[in-house]
Design a protein around this nucleic acid. Structure first.
Lengths: 213, 213
DNA sequence: GTCTATAAGGGGATAGAC
DNA sequence: GTCTATCCCCTTATAGAC
């Protein structure tokens, strides 16, 4: 039995702030908004978190970690095959994104607006480029820059959530059906990734055709 | 010989505003920023565009059209095959995005923050769901919701640009190499899309295996 | 820890002179 | 068309009472 988090004032503030920052962005969110949302006096926010910017920094670091850090262990696990990594990544990430669908757009956009947020200790570059995943991809298809496959995999996982604002506000799609489609993707993306890896032969054919012409 | 656009005050303002809005977002951009960037007096911005919100609306509609409206004719062309449509879409869109790499993240994010911007006359829903493209996709693979393939295609095209802030600010990748990779994708994505369409048989195999178990 | 009151400044917008 | 000066509101942040 844990004490309900919402009872603690500082957490009530942080939760409300996170909700508002992720939906409206940093600049469009005021301390007054946060105070109203969390039903707390404005002065208390500065009491607990010193400043709006500091509160944002804390939330941003949390979100960044939620979004990126959880995948590093999967990428680096040397005891799993490429196929197992992809399946694990797709399942965990889609499940996570169904719970926090606004997180990718929020984090990616704030990083664009203010790249200094990326000066985190997490060294993405080394972690990703020297990962077991990249090695396994290169072993499978050495002719194509492995980054292509990273873009494809992450794109297939994340992009539907990036497009969600367009889709749902235009009533193109109800929320229920969106979630159903995402669940279908859990087993479809691994299949598609496998097909994409094996497109190598088709590229060879393509090269041969253009060569003999 | 056209008169250089930059000489006209109202255009100077709009160009600067577009640059600032797309890089910093609506709320983080002040009229004073725009005045400084375009080297005009603050009062002139309100003289020409009445209000910050109105100026933003104009820029948003322009960006939205640049990003979405150009693809509608391609999707609806009944004289092209599915393969030709994909090739045309990939080439035109990647070329366009290389010129305006920040546009997707800007438009998609502002749509999330303020969905009222989407109340445009462009009825995306009908235009897309009744397009020739969707029919051709369904003819090719009737077992899977065609939206999956739309997500995959658009994701493979657009997602690298969404990830760009993470990639370039972490020095993961120089701009030159990024552009080179995008150019490689011009012929790779059509190949991959073809492989993905033909994954149908593999899904059948998958279903058979799980059924006989 | 929580509140009220207020300081200090930045924001959008406009009136009126040129 | 362009500028200066200014209005008025909303913002963040804090001092000080409880």
């Amino acid at each position: 039995m844990s004490i309900p988090k919402k009872e603690i004032t500082s957490d009530k503030i942080k939760d409300s702030a996170k909700k508002l920052f992720t939906t409206k962005g940093y600049s469009a969110t005021t301390i007054r908004d946060i105070a109203k949302e969390s039903q707390v006096n404005i002065a208390l926010i500065n009491y607990y978190y010193r400043s709006k910017e500091n509160l944002f920094r804390i939330i941003m670091e949390e979100s960044f970690e939620q979004l990126f850090k959880q995948i590093i262990p999967i990428l680096n696990n040397k005891d799993t095959t490429l196929e197992e990594k992809i399946e694990s990544l797709v399942n965990n990430y889609l499940e996570f994104l169904l719970e926090f669908p606004e997180l990718p757009l929020f984090v990616l956009n704030e990083l664009k607006n203010n790249p200094k947020h990326l000066e985190t200790k997490i060294n993405l570059k080394k972690k990703v480029s020297k990962s077991s995943l990249i090695n396994q991809i290169m072993a499978k298809n050495s002719e194509i820059n492995p980054l292509h496959f990273v873009f494809n995999l992450l794109g297939m996982i994340v992009f539907p959530f990036i497009m969600k604002p367009v889709i749902s506000s235009s009533k193109l799609l109800e929320n229920e059906i969106f979630n159903q489609i995402i669940n279908e993707r859990k087993h479809l993306i691994p299949l598609w990734m496998n097909s994409i890896f094996n497109s190598k032969t088709e590229i060879d054919i393509f090269n041969q055709i253009t060569k003999t012409k």
